[in-house]
Amino acid sequence: MKLMDIFGTLKKDMDFIERQLYRSVEGDEELLNETSLHLLKAGGKRLRPIFVLLGGKFGTYDLERLQYVAVPLELIHSASLVHDDVIDDAGTRRGKPTVKAKWDNKIAMYTGDYIYAKALMLATQLPDPEVHRILSKAMVQMSIGEMEQIRDFFNTGQSVRHYLLRIRRKTALLIAISCQLGAVAAGADARASSLLYRYGYNIGMAFQIRDDLLDLCGTEKSIGKPPGSDMRQGNITLPVIYTLQDPELSGPLLQAIEGIRGADGSEHISEAINIIKSGSGIAQAERLAETFTDKALAALDQLPESKARTHLKEIALFINKRSY
């Protein structure tokens, strides 16, 4: 099932948001236009705008107004990916060459900065200080999360709690405020926006854990990058942390990870993945993802019954079982 199949009723509005995304990065500099559109046109799930629109259904739904939240949030997410690809030295993203691979690191960094700036310019079209406060606070936390990830490259001694705090900042917060800001921009009551934030936070945590699982269990065709890319880049994810806690597997896995750190660690990636798959780390990570999904659904159940609530539930169930 494709994500858009879940809520066909939003297709027209999402097509509008997609067009606005492309228009939002237009400017006088031809190269920046080209590099900015490169990632946007590669596609993506567009989860954050979708969550904004569904959050807006709990208030007075106004697409003209909601675009000034939906488009900036997707731009912020896209800018962070451009920067991530530089840090991770990634050659592909969504099955296409990254900006840094097609051009170079300097062009990619300025492209990310440009997209961030365009996002903030667009958000100012909504004269609501609460929206700007929530958005800027989340961007600060995202930056902290990125710094923590860099600091923790190949840190095999990190705890589960430390990992969860990092993905909260890197991933879950932006999804949480996407749900929340849709409601805030639509004038929904405080209880609804709070419950939507809680839903988004928990589904964001589940989403990232599933992403980390797919990096180990998926195929290059399904995930758009070679399996094991996280370890190759030094990112120690939840299934790896759980496996390192296994006394029988920790030694061989540590040795494989040390090999990955070498000049050419590609041959050790498959070895590390096989070790992880032989233990219970993947099953443990799956259970935690399901726990976060259950918490998201519990928050959702407290909202008034509606088509939007049904769609949010379907998205949660989709994320919990996604294979791409």
Rank of each mutant, 00 (worst) to 15 (best):
G234Q: 03
A176M: 03
Q233T: 12
G228V: 08
S280K: 12
L300E: 08
Y242A: 11
I17K: 00
A70S: 00
L254Q: 14
A79E: 04
D88A: 14
A183D: 05
E286F: 10
Q302T: 11
K57P: 01
R48I: 00
R65V: 13
S80V: 02
R198A: 13
A108N: 09
Q233F: 06
R94V: 04
G8W: 06
Y324V: 13
R133A: 15
Q245Y: 08
G56F: 00
S280R: 12
F51W: 09
L297C: 06
A108P: 08
G27F: 13
D152S: 15
Q233L: 02
L238G: 05
R168N: 13
D88E: 11
A192K: 12
M14P: 02
M1S: 12
A299I: 05
I115C: 01
R19I: 09
S136I: 14
K102F: 04
I175S: 01
R46T: 07
I76N: 00
D85C: 05
A316Y: 00
A117Q: 09
L238R: 05
R93C: 02
Q233A: 15
V140M: 13
E130I: 13
K41L: 15
T156A: 11
K57W: 00
R23C: 14
G56Q: 00
A123I: 12
E64R: 00
M142K: 07
M139N: 08
Q255W: 07
T98V: 08
Y197Q: 10
D294C: 08
G112I: 09
G262D: 04
F292W: 04
D230L: 06
E286K: 12
T293D: 00
S323Y: 07
S266H: 10
S24A: 15
